[in-house]
Design a protein around this nucleic acid. Structure first.
Lengths: 219, 219
DNA sequence: GTCTATAATATGATAGAC
DNA sequence: GTCTATCATATTATAGAC
């Protein structure tokens, strides 16, 4: 048996046993190559196994992919919730949003193959698998709904904005980074800063914003 | 030979001949089922043909998918450019952005199976096909880069914003609508309005914006 | 827990008749 | 331009030895 294959973007902490190794490997390959292009033989080979051996641990390919999808949401959800909970209870909306955006991007782009696999292959998996997974995704999206509500209340956000559509735009912008992040266009911190500022302040010039004016002169 | 199968979301204008019928059908099936789940037998059957007959018109599945991708960008690009060109030369930034967003969403969600197929399957096709198509996508993205520059100049947009990242966030938010639009959450006009306003004004309360204050009281 | 061997099926592609 | 028939290959999944 080979040692655990290193993730190309981060080290997954567990995966000592067969089942964990298979899942780690599947997540990495699904992220890299997509769902259909990753066969059970590919996964087994990377684990130093033969394809038939996978069926001792899982009943089907769909069971493997279902687990990868579930863990992907679990990882990013835990990471973002923990980051937000670590803030002081009276944190302002800008800090809350910045922290959540930073944590989501970090899980997606730096930490977890499971999360990037989820985003990458969600639209490719067989409909029954996708439908069974939707409830898990919904739970994480509800966290964002509550976060945006908290921010809107704390900072008195423009009540004309539709927070449900805003959440969809934001999550699509966040997950979309997976498609172009590797081009080296920006760091996670730069993306976090730019997206947070854009969401909060928009593109229009800020009226009577003397602070922004002063900052600009200094650069 | 069957008559042209109706698109489920719109009528594609051409497709009288065999080649056009095959492409129309392929675009629709790719959009509905994804790349790997759509076999040449499926496409042929929907055209009232047998799989072998496709090879009179195309050399391979990759050639079909390459054409579908190309036409998808061509359609949305033509539609958006035409809409923007129809505006008066001195149109303000809000009108420019609103018009381009509206046209892109309309092509993606209402008009063209080719465009929605492109967005849906781009991440699924074999790497050589994807790489050969990138230049076509880049050309359309350059249009958006120029549009945002024009807007920034016209309206004096906040110079602290990074327009390259802004374009990526915006296009990801636009294309991401494909995943949830059918849930009936909002109309194309509502999505257009909300995304445009969010991009321009952001979530924060507008300082000294008496107009917004007055509107709010009225609701 | 992993192996070998294989069943059952589906796919992209080709050859040649009509 | 479309058909039938078929090749070569790949896939998920199972059965039984070790």
């Amino acid at each position: 048996m080979l040692t655990k294959p290193r993730s190309s973007i981060a080290i997954e902490p567990e995966a000592i046993d067969g089942r964990g190794l298979i899942l780690d490997t599947a997540a990495r390959l699904f992220r890299e190559d997509g769902y259909a292009a990753t066969s059970l033989r590919d996964i087994a080979a990377e684990c130093g196994m033969k394809a038939g051996s996978l069926y001792y641990h899982f009943a089907s390919k769909d069971e493997i992919i279902g687990e990868v999808l579930r863990i992907g949401v679990e990882r990013v959800s835990d990471h973002v919730r923990r980051a937000v909970l670590a803030l002081p209870p009276n944190a302002d909306a800008r800090t809350l949003l910045h922290t959540a955006v930073r944590a989501h991007l970090s899980a997606l782009l730096e930490l977890h193959d499971y999360t990037s696999a989820n985003v990458r292959i969600f639209g490719q998996v067989p409909a029954p698998v996708r439908e069974a997974h939707i409830a898990t995704r919904d739970a994480y999206e509800r966290f964002w709904t509550e976060l945006l509500k908290r921010c809107a209340k704390q900072a008195g956000w423009n009540p004309r904005r539709d927070l449900a559509l805003t959440r969809l735009f934001l999550i699509n912008a966040l997950n979309g980074t997976l498609e172009w992040f590797s081009d080296g266009r920006a760091t996670v911190d730069q993306i976090t800063h730019e997206l947070t500022e854009l969401m909060l302040d928009g593109l229009s010039p800020r009226q009577h914003d003397s602070k922004a004016q002063k900052r600009r002169v200094r650069i």
